[in-house]
């Protein structure tokens, strides 16, 4: 496959082995191992402060790990930082540029640092910045800034693209545009590594995921694998006013879980539990207010792995 007449980048396997990083009293990253295969979208999922950004910045060469190794193919990145800088494209969480530089000038400035570059106009067109090419960075909207940040991350035709919270603070339409761009990067044969704390984003976008919390990798796999492993089956949700006892006996019911909005019945087999619930309700003359069923999501996986919701 060819992209814009330019040969596809050949990305390599990224291996992170036993990497640690400490800031003062805080162990930000506590000995993580990851293998990121070339050509997919790899997501680091976790709440704020989980260590996602620190992990990304150590791979990018912006921070030095206290311990561990980071390898890209044959290269030890801790000793060959130039490899990372030349071949990786980086969009930081707070990608600020010179406020009074124009969009096209900003791309040109960054392009001047690299030996290998993509044509500027191609990047401007691709990220829908044609009308803003002569605008100062300070006059761009949040979504336009984000697109410029991704465009600048691509200026060196990178093999691996790192996107740190690429959709944070964007409206739904702008988020979907970013998702499309990210999928396009994968289509061009690049490896994409992104962080997010949005479950839907991780589920919709990522081929593989690592769930992170408190500097640890809790588990890793495709979104479906993670759901199968930690929350197979489905959930029956009811209004909290429905009198469900914690020790309610229903076929295939695993657990009852409560929060302010709903009482959830976790089940391995939705059909059996649901049938049992309906019978129980008829016997006890209980109206099943707010009844709905759904299959488990990453949100449930995260809740299971960390014992808390991502939004906490």
């Amino acid at each position: 496959m060819w992209a814009g007449g330019i040969t596809l980048p050949h990305s390599e396997v990224l291996r992170i082995m036993g990497v640690r990083k400490r800031y003062g009293q805080v162990q930000a990253v506590d000995g993580i191992d990851l293998t990121i295969d070339p050509g997919g979208i790899f997501g680091l999922l976790g709440p704020n402060g989980a260590g996602k950004t620190t992990t990304l910045e150590m791979i990018e060469g912006l921070r030095k790990p206290d311990a561990g190794q980071i390898r890209y193919g044959e290269w030890d990145l801790l000793h060959h930082q130039k490899v990372a800088r030349e071949r990786f494209g980086v969009q930081l969480q707070t990608s600020a540029f010179f406020e009074l530089l124009r969009v096209d000038e900003t791309i040109d400035l960054f392009a001047s640092f690299y030996a290998r570059t993509l044509p500027r106009d191609q990047l401007i067109d691709r990220f829908g910045l044609q009308e803003k090419r002569s605008a100062y960075v300070q006059n761009l909207s949040g979504g336009q800034r984000q697109r410029l940040a991704v465009a600048v991350a691509l200026v060196n035709d990178p093999e691996v693209v790192f996107l740190d919270e690429p959709t944070a603070g964007l409206d739904p339409q702008a988020r979907r545009n970013v998702w499309d761009s990210v999928r396009q990067l994968r289509g061009e044969g690049r490896t994409v590594v992104l962080t997010t704390h949005y479950m839907d984003e991780a589920e919709a976008l990522c081929d593989r995921l690592a769930v992170m919390d408190h500097g640890h990798i809790l588990d890793e796999g495709s979104p479906q694998e993670l759901i199968q492993r930690h929350r197979p089956g489905a959930m029956i949700e009811l209004d909290p006013s429905v009198p469900i006892a914690d020790d309610l006996q229903l076929p295939s019911l695993q657990r009852v879980q409560r929060d302010a909005l709903a009482t959830a019945l976790m089940t391995e087999r939705l059909d059996e539990t649901l049938a049992g619930l309906v019978m129980w309700a008829r016997e006890h003359d209980v109206p099943l207010t707010g009844l709905r069923t759904r299959s488990a999501t990453l949100e449930d996986v995260f809740l299971h792995l960390t014992g808390r919701s991502l939004r906490d």
Partner: peptide
């Protein structure tokens, strides 16, 4: 604002 780190992530 993170302008410096963005430059540090390039070969500059």
């Amino acid at each position: 604002k993170g302008v410096l780190r963005r430059f540090l992530a390039t070969p500059l």
